[in-house]
Amino acid sequence: MRTWRVLLVVLVTVVAVVAVLWLAQRRLIYFPDRAAPAAPPDVREVALETADGLRLSAWLLPPTGADRGYAVLMTPGNAGNRAGRIVLARSLAAAGLTVLVVDYRGYGGNPGGPTEEGLALDARAGLAYLSAAGFVPGRVVYFGESLGAAVATGLAAEHPPAGLVLRSPFVDLAAAGQVHYPFLPVRLLLRDRFAVAETIARVRVPTVVIYGSADATVPPDQSRAVADRAAGPVTVVVIDGADHNDAELFHGPRITSAVTDLLHRLG
């Protein structure tokens, strides 16, 4: 009898833990800074209209170097807000690019809460804004960072850009989550999938995959696997010794160079 009671307690505990994880899982995926950042003087705050009726704030930076006639649509990672991407955005603008930094629903003072479907809608709204500003898809490069690499890849499969730059992409969210929660059935529990490697197999545009060799958040072998699955021509850039949020990988000069080198190849 005692054995059955112990087993029952264990079973109830496991079910309770799984239930909590199922209900609260997005709090373990998305870490938004919900505060609305003030736009610096060199930044234009713009509004993106999503297909499900949200109005999102984003930042637009015009080129400060010789205008190349290209725009970069930046889809950030899962933490912070657009203010944390301003250094890279300014570097890209100085390289002659128009830069739109998307802030997702639930981030940076925006309404709503993040989900995989919602982030896809937010990225589409960013592309629609650039299209209305005169940038056809053949003059837009998508730049996705970490989780944003999944968002950018999904958008590229739907609306092929001139080129795609993925910084620290994972194979899929379950593979990334299993690294940090090896004791949980992550693949069974996840509602948001972000299947990057599967999706990029349908993307034929020139692609750059950037990762740090010491990335402890997204293991380098996952980023390499994404590069291996790409259907189009791929360039791989490895930042030796860089971890996931190190400055060199976050907004260092080699990140900007990876984008401008891609543009040179596009002609």
Rank of each mutant, 00 (worst) to 15 (best):
R105S: 11
D172A: 02
P114F: 05
A35V: 14
G65N: 04
E49C: 01
A149Y: 06
A47K: 13
L8Y: 08
R44H: 13
R105G: 02
A258C: 13
P161R: 05
G106K: 04
A19H: 08
A128P: 10
P185Y: 00
G163T: 02
L266K: 02
V102M: 04
V237T: 06
G148T: 13
A176T: 11
G109K: 05
N110H: 09
A51C: 08
G138W: 08
A89K: 07
R167W: 00
G212K: 04
G109L: 06
V72G: 00
V186M: 12
L266I: 03
R229I: 05
G232H: 07
P219K: 01
A230W: 08
V141K: 12
V226P: 01
D243F: 01
Y181E: 09
G148F: 06
R204D: 14
L61M: 12
V234K: 01
G118V: 02
A47W: 12
A19G: 15
A247H: 13
V20C: 13
V9N: 08
A227R: 09
A197N: 04
R191V: 10
P111W: 00
D261I: 02
G108R: 05
H159S: 14
D172Q: 07
S57R: 15
R224N: 04
G232M: 07
V179Y: 13
A242V: 11
L60H: 10
D228T: 14
L263G: 02
R224W: 09
V141M: 06
A149V: 06
V165E: 02
A47P: 01
H159I: 11
R167F: 01
Y70E: 06
S213F: 03
I86T: 13
